[in-house]
Amino acid sequence: MQMRLGRHTFGPDDTVMMAIVNRTRDSFYDRGATFDDGPAQERVHRVVHEGAEMIDIGGVRAGYGEQVDAAEEIRRVAPFVAWVRETYPGVVVSVDTWRSEVAREVCRAGADVLNDAWGGHDPALVEVAAEHDAAVICTHTGGLAPRTDPYRIEYDDVVADAIAETTRLAERALAAGVARESIVIDPAHDFGKNTFHSLEITRRLGEMVATGWPVLVSLSNKDFVGETLDLPTQQRLTGTLAATAICALAGARIYRVHEVVETRETVDMAWSIAGRRLPRRAIRGIQ
């Protein structure tokens, strides 16, 4: 299915690298590296140069941490959205927020996508998306409130739960007036999940793809990779790429990443193995 992310359209076999740019002091991987404008702009220049088709801008750390109210979140994110849009009009601009008041301001500033990483916590967010013809990402969090970690959450079937919840959110977005081709679902590895849940979601990602909604995966350097390999945050790239390959084989369309080049190569390789992408240049044995 064709996928439209605000002003940008992607064909049924296109994959998208969504590079993370955090305007936070305390996000788990970058630890505030792009909180200030200068380094944030530098990171955007770099990831666009590396081939990212999409930038995901976040103003609030996903986990517990510094309180950031809506006004502060808007201050961190909205002017930066306008800057990215003006500097790179060919790049999709996404904002990671659960607040409709933030969503409204970033849409006014030119955001194409609202990455509702806390699974419909603010029901008005999809109305803002519809109003501005923005795309929306519908996420499974297992019912957790924003910025909380799972504690003894269990599921009868985590994949079934993720499908039920994300497709329910997708239908709600559709009913609110968001275009069908602009709705994406995300099982949200680690969100409301222990490592066993995230591994199972990865193993059975094809079931989510089979819903027909385009699937986004956010795997990059997450705890389920770290726990699986017993590695700290900065040593999780290989594990991340292994999980990425599995999700690509299953047909995930959007990859939310810290490392653009490595993820792009992994996805392209898996996509070609799956028969959805031609090799770049093949002559071996067929001269």
Binding site: R281, G285, I286
Partner: peptide, 16 residues
């Protein structure tokens, strides 16, 4: 008889 001429062996970039 270059097999790379055949569509089943096409890549994104034509090597020939």
């Amino acid at each position: 008889g270059v097999l790379a001429f055949l569509p089943e062996y096409a890549g994104q970039v034509d090597p020939v």
